[in-house]
Design a protein around this nucleic acid. Structure first.
Lengths: 194, 194, 194, 194
DNA sequence: CGATAATCGAGACGGTACGTCTTGTCTTAGG
DNA sequence: CCTAAGACAAGACGTACCGTCTCGATTATCG
């Protein structure tokens, strides 16, 4: 049963997300106003408020595609730790671009608006972790990762370190990432001989 | 050489910081307005603008005492790693209170105002790290910490993990902190036999 | 061609003018702030700024009705000079009330804001003069006013005298007005026998 | 008995008046702030407040010399009306320059501050009228001015007309002034034959 | 086909905070 | 006692966004 009334305009929806993403790259989330988005998208402010609960929500949806693409990992046959190492370096690299700044902005927005935080956890943190988790599970299963560490904590430390740099506007250099990974892998790797 | 003109009012200065701290605890930095601060402090807005460059700067100064007190570490004679472990748990504990939320707010403010970020690094991150660094240096010196890890990176990972939880509004439970410390210490500890 | 967007609120518009007029009577234009107007009118400051370029403009519009009503002249069949005499006394009388003080305030505001001066000439001086001019023209036509005086100058002198008293906060008493009219009429009346 | 303490600084006093006069010419009374005066005069704001009750008072004192000089009339042996005519034209001419604008500003200021109005009447209107009055008295005495007109009213009309033009920022052209004088003199001149 | 209903744009509305400016008072040190 | 310097409380200014609202116009489904 099709809904009654004029259907939602896909063109408008897309234009809004496009405008938002452009503005995010140009000025960052802190300087983003819904009015500027609406004007650039040729939309009206009411349309924005109709479909999104908050500025953070629009920013998140506008960035999700990019984020997912840049961070995505096609699993390769290596052992878990090697693969994890490769993954982290690709994440760090992705974060050096504009995407890192956008995520930092979203994280900041989460401190002003609980709804944005909720969405952030649901749409960004959750899926990302769900994607990586199997890798760590595999490591736990095959014994390459110590059995007594929580994979969640591993992820907390990983993303914590990366995001902390982002928030301080310090680029996540490869060398730095190597250091982090080194400590991390040493910390979680099962000790062969004990 | 005595300064000319009416001297700065200590009473006003103190009242402003007090009012700011109270408001930070009650509503958080996101809801803090200079007007509310001025009104509660019995000060005028111009006085605020005279002495502080931004909202973030006031918030930082108002919180610095508390932060420094809560995070301070009186060094004890243990070995470096044990002491570090104790330190981190005390930090995590401090962050569970209102102070954690305030710091998360400041970190968010840093994303909107470069000056606040500069002050944050200078007044908060710098001193804190300078305070802890000797501990890690001691560990490096006595061989309890692997010689090939950067103490800066250790701190990045430590605070990164803690602050990441803060930003996601997840309390830094003792058990979680134990897990982090465990990975960290294992990751940085020199392996006795290899 | 119907205007697009939400239409202007007449209620708000009226409430603003009403509030302005009340405040003008209570405290005068010098003490009038847009904030007080907005608050009393239950409007927002942005609405005021949207529709009026300046404080003076609001004050003028708010007073125009009253001024026009109080100064209006229903022409009577007398000869021109007699009618002019009656008109001036009615104007002087009107100016003894609060309206005179308001006009003095507007005239003062004109010295601080060119736009207000422009509006004053366009909305107040112009119409008023246009209304009176036919009377003087009639006098000129029927020979009761000397042909070599400019009606504009007559008006300059008339209103100049009255407004000068207003600005010095000297009530325009009937006796004084009689003196003015006497000089004026003698000065402009055609001499029958020469 | 000599007064105790540091004597009033004439240099400061003079510098303040000079700075005020310059600023009045450059920007007008409406844009004049005591702060700008103090800064340009190298004085402190408290010194201004010590010696003058208001902005208007400083402006008035700063302008009085100029005004008195520009408007001054050295009486000549003509008959009263001819002399009055000459006087008015000189006043009108003086008012075409910056002085006219300054007086308009003072008149405006009088609407916001009663003290300035009081001073205006006392220091400016009074002396000026006292200076001209003998002229009119002479005319009354020698019968060239009608006995039944009040000299005060004559002055009201004269200055009223001139100031009204000033307030509307209309230059007091010689031709216009001639028209005014013509009406006035005709209005007040004793009719030889009746 | 016409009624109904939801969407869209435009833009006005009441609010709130901003950062700046000016006012009049005060508190120093020093002449 | 006066002066320069300058801090202070107060409060208005004009601007910028916010989230809501009220329109006319558009575009679909359903009777």
């Amino acid at each position: 049963m099709a809904p009654v009334g004029r259907p939602r305009s896909d063109a408008s929806h897309a234009a809004i997300l496009k405008a938002t993403y452009e503005l995010l790259q140009e000025e960052g989330l802190a300087r983003l106003t819904l009015d500027k988005v609406a004007r650039r998208a040729g939309a009206s402010r009411s349309t924005l408020y109709r479909w999104w609960p908050s500025r953070g929500a629009i920013a998140m949806e506008a960035t999700l595609d990019t984020i997912n693409r840049e961070m995505s990992l096609e699993p390769q046959g290596d052992n878990a730790l090697a693969e994890y190492r490769r993954l982290l370096k690709s994440v760090a690299r992705a974060m050096r671009g504009g995407t890192g700044a956008i995520i930092a902005g979203i994280l900041a927005e989460c401190q002003r608006d609980p709804e944005t935080l909720r969405l952030y956890k649901e749409k960004l943190v959750g899926p990302r972790r769900a994607e990586i988790m199997p890798l760590l599970q595999r490591g736990l299963a095959d014994g390459s990762i110590r059995a007594d560490v929580s994979p969640q904590t591993i992820l907390d430390m990983t993303f914590g370190a990366i995001y902390h740099q982002l928030l301080l506007h310090i680029p996540t250099e490869d060398a730095w990432m190597d250091g982090v990974i080194d400590i991390l892998v040493n910390g979680i790797a099962a000790k062969p001989s004990r």
